[in-house]
């Protein structure tokens, strides 16, 4: 991969602690993410992957430490300003499944539209590009309740893409999908990151796939949270420590987990 001079730190965290007042979930989180990189956040259930994602999107405050977007503290952004920097794909279901795919994707243009939400020519074009990029042009008129899980997830990603932000955060984008569609979504994310120079971050339980596909990984374990390229993390033996070792072990040679007999 050739080095891009425009590549710089887009999203970073320094000694970040996240969680809720009574329940500190994880601390000492450090990372620096560049444009054009696909990053996975992994860790066991309840370790705070979604909380971290929400904190990165300024939907909840950090307990301590700092997050910077484009080298400026996150809390200096107004919600309006931030909406043109960070887009999200969440696990929560759509409130209205009656939206058509095209309507859903076009809603991604909201931060740029006027007071009543009129789409300009530019907005329409960006919507079309997002639909085309995710292969949704043929089902653009379908309602969301008619879509399969994989199609719906692609539509949600297209909406985030239409929002035209430097950073896309996705919360478990591959849950409920079969192996084929999991790989499809992850490869799509990778090509989005590499081709559009966006910073794409997602939480996942698919550690083995993430090792194969991602540029960087953040392993949340609640204490030191190793961060780096997957191969580096394997060398450090970071994956062995993710799960309690009474059930599974990690095989560094193949990058896979084995069930302990």
């Amino acid at each position: 991969m050739k080095e891009d001079t425009s590549r710089h730190t887009v999203l970073s965290a320094t000694d970040l602690a996240i969680g809720y007042k009574k329940n500190k979930v994880a601390r000492h989180i450090n990372f620096a993410l560049n444009g054009g990189e696909l990053t996975a956040i992994v860790g066991i259930n309840g370790i705070g992957k979604s909380t971290l994602l929400r904190t990165m999107a300024h939907m909840q405050p950090p307990l301590s430490g700092s997050i910077e977007v484009d080298r400026k503290p996150l809390d200096t952004y107004t919600p309006q300003k931030l909406s043109s920097k960070i887009s999200m794909v969440l696990t929560e279901p759509l409130a209205s499944k009656n939206l058509s795919v095209a309507e859903l994707v076009a809603l991604g243009r909201q931060p740029y539209t006027n007071w009543i939400g009129t789409l300009t020519e530019d907005d329409r074009q960006k919507t079309e590009e997002a639909l085309a990029a995710l292969g949704l042009a043929s089902i653009r008129k379908k309602k969301c309740y008619e879509l399969s899980d994989g199609q719906l997830q692609r539509a949600m990603i297209a909406r985030a893409l239409a929002q035209d932000t430097a950073i896309i955060l996705l919360d478990e984008p591959t849950t409920h999908l079969d192996l084929y569609h999991k790989v499809q979504i992850l490869k799509l994310l990778k090509s989005i990151a590499h081709e559009t120079q966006k910073t794409v971050v997602f939480t996942t339980h698919e550690i083995e796939m993430a090792i194969q596909l991602c540029d960087k990984m953040l392993l949340l374990n609640g204490t030191d949270n190793p961060f780096g390229q997957p191969c580096q993390l394997i060398e450090q033996g970071a994956f062995e420590a993710i799960f309690p070792d009474d059930t599974v072990t990690f095989d560094g040679e193949t990058g896979t987990f084995r069930i302990k007999k």
Binding site: P79, S83, I86, M88, P93, A95, S96, L107, Q110
Partner: peptide
């Protein structure tokens, strides 16, 4: 889209 999405859209 839901309240969280609305928030993320500014």
């Amino acid at each position: 889209l839901g309240e969280n999405y609305a928030q993320s859209l500014g």
